[in-house]
């Protein structure tokens, strides 16, 4: 079973829920796809191994370049510029599409590997943990996310901590999931972003359910929406200062006083997936 945890808004409790679900599922693999804010791994361990992830960027051979500017004109990302008689590459804008090399009539463009980021991995007890890290200044970590997702064994249980928002990297991270857990706060803002991610899960026709994080006495806003779209509320994580304190220190709250809340959510998910 593969569970994806997502939320439209940052700070809604996505990572909190994902790490604790993984913690409770014996032998599960945890995949942290939030490569721009890679914190999930640290809940499990302080140290981890690093694997480098590379992308390709063009290198111009100035001796062969005839300054025809075909590559400059082709590049949709403006990653190549005409620099006073030379063509200059701006790696931070390059999407590694390979187009410039194809259009160069003089064979003056080759590609070289450039470090895009890392995959961080470790094993803790019976869990395998994978996370990624995008180097500062790099625009997109989609290829790191693809590599992290490839680490999951489809026969084993895994939990995916998706990136925030609704961009292409979120789509990538839910594409193989059996179930999507949507985390929302019971506020007008939370609801707005919940609607957004729910629409996303619909595109891939994924089964989904809602967990209300920072739950208070009245969570009617989100409950009413769940009723309207006919998806279940899987559980509630309370709005509690002690929980927030433990979580801010990257402690695994499901090992302590708050275990029952996460057990409840997990049991509900198991039931939903089996239907």
């Amino acid at each position: 079973m593969q569970i994806a945890v997502l939320s439209g808004k940052g700070g809604a409790g996505k990572t909190l829920l994902a790490v604790n679900l993984a913690n409770l599922i014996e032998g599960s693999t945890f995949l942290d796809c939030d490569v721009e804010e890679p914190n999930g791994v640290f809940y499990f361990a302080d140290t981890y191994n690093k694997e480098e992830v590379y992308t390709k960027i063009p290198v111009i051979n100035d001796h062969l370049c005839k300054h025809c500017n075909k590559c400059v004109d082709f590049c949709r990302y403006n990653a190549l510029i005409d620099f006073l008689g030379k063509v200059k590459v701006l790696p931070s804008l390059c999407h590694s599409c390979g187009g410039c090399q194809l259009v160069c009539p003089h064979g003056a463009i080759k590609e070289k590997d450039e470090l895009l980021g890392y995959i961080n991995y470790t094993s803790v007890r019976d869990h395998k943990i994978f996370g990624g890290e995008l180097r500062i200044g790099k625009e997109t970590g989609v290829s790191i996310i693809e590599k992290i997702l490839a680490k999951a064994n489809t026969n084993e249980d895994s939990v995916i901590d998706c990136p925030p928002g609704n961009g292409c990297s979120v789509m990538e991270s839910i594409s193989d999931a059996d179930y999507c857990v949507l985390v929302s706060e019971p506020t007008v803002f939370g609801l707005e972003n919940l609607k957004m991610v729910y629409d996303l899960t619909k595109i891939y026709k994924k089964k989904s359910g809602i967990v209300i994080n920072k739950a208070v006495e009245d969570n009617g806003l989100v409950e009413a929406y769940a009723k309207e779209i006919h998806i279940p509320i899987l559980g509630y994580i309370p709005f509690d200062k002690n929980l927030a304190l433990s979580n801010s220190k990257l402690e695994m709250v499901s090992n302590g006083a708050f275990k029952s809340y996460f057990d409840h959510v997990l049991n509900r998910i198991k039931k939903e997936v089996s239907i």
Binding site: H95, V142, C168
Partner: peptide, 28 residues
């Protein structure tokens, strides 16, 4: 040639608009 795995051929060749980054290589 698509580096973004945006083109599928399950039922004729099609572009997945969510994966396409508009680089222009396929057209070339």
């Amino acid at each position: 040639h698509c580096r973004f795995n945006a083109i599928t051929d399950d039922d004729g060749y099609k572009v997945n608009p969510f994966k396409c980054e508009g680089c222009g290589v396929c057209g070339y």
